[in-house]
Design a protein around this nucleic acid. Structure first.
Lengths: 149, 149
DNA sequence: TATAAAACACAAATTAATATCATTACAATT
DNA sequence: AATTGTAATGATATTAATTTGTGTTTTATA
């Protein structure tokens, strides 16, 4: 935990940004809810619990900054709000998501499944791939079992 | 063209919706701009050219309806607006997009590149895939050439 | 043609996100 | 230590996209 904060601090410093208390509080919330795909509003409320004086705009600005630095990925499942995911350490790419259309749960996949597909895209369409985002919509493990009962 | 409108009409009727003049005008705009990834506002302005009395809310409701019926796909490239793409005839899946980070152009790919990947997801995570959305971010053909000059 | 349901236009409300701006924190410099 | 300049902050207003009322009109069908 402290370790990862240290790293993010260095990443900020390398671009001459500072890890202010507000930014640190925001990062801590992200670290404590890594699996949760929180919206900016969610994050704001959680940060506020420990640092009640923080403003919503600051949270937005922090998330925007972290997004530029590729510390977090800003994702959009089409429900009107942006969500923010910490990028896993060392991960070069955006991770993928499995969104269950029954229960709404979101599972993450770290594996890079698209190596071959990217090669096809690069050769066939002469498109230099920098990043990708892939989401599957379907029915999760649990909901499948529930239906079979 | 008329053919495809006929089909959409039947699809609406099958769920006991009507293809009203306003809805038809909206569908025509979509058909005439199939490659363009229009926003609701864009579509509204185009429909208005031929049917000036239409309301924006009607366009939104129409797009929402078409989206439910899987006639169009509602997509979001993270720029704050939803865009609406006609689903290709017979296409079971969402098509993919190549978004150029230089010039903002968007190219579509019809090919189903994810057959193998879906199999992996289904077996390894026991997730029944219904649909997917895949977007690549990178540098398009034209911008690559421009940079090399 | 009568009738009820559906769809409509327009206005108003909601919501996420951004912009503005006065204030504050902080580091570098004198 | 005082000064100065820059960046960050918080409160609030504003914007922009979308959704939701409301009363009216259209449409299908009996």
């Amino acid at each position: 935990m402290e370790n990862r904060i240290e790293k993010i601090k260095k990443q900020l410093h390398s671009q001459s940004y500072k890890l202010t208390p507000q930014r640190e509080a925001t990062v801590r919330v992200l670290l404590e809810h890594e699996e949760d795909h929180l919206s900016a509003e969610d994050i704001y409320l959680l940060v506020k619990e420990k640092s009640p004086e923080i403003g919503l705009a600051t949270v937005y600005r922090t998330l925007e900054l972290l997004s530029e630095l590729k510390v977090v990925d800003k994702i959009n499942f089409g429900d009107g709000v942006s969500r923010y995911d910490l990028r896993k350490e060392g991960a070069e790419h955006f991770h993928h998501h499995l969104v269950c259309v029954e229960c709404g749960s979101v599972k993450e996949i770290e594996d890079d499944l698209l190596g071959d597909v990217e090669k096809i895209v690069e050769s066939q369409w002469e498109f230099k791939v920098k990043d990708h985002r892939l989401t599957f919509h379907g029915i999760c493990n649990k909901c499948q079992n529930r239906e079979n009962e």
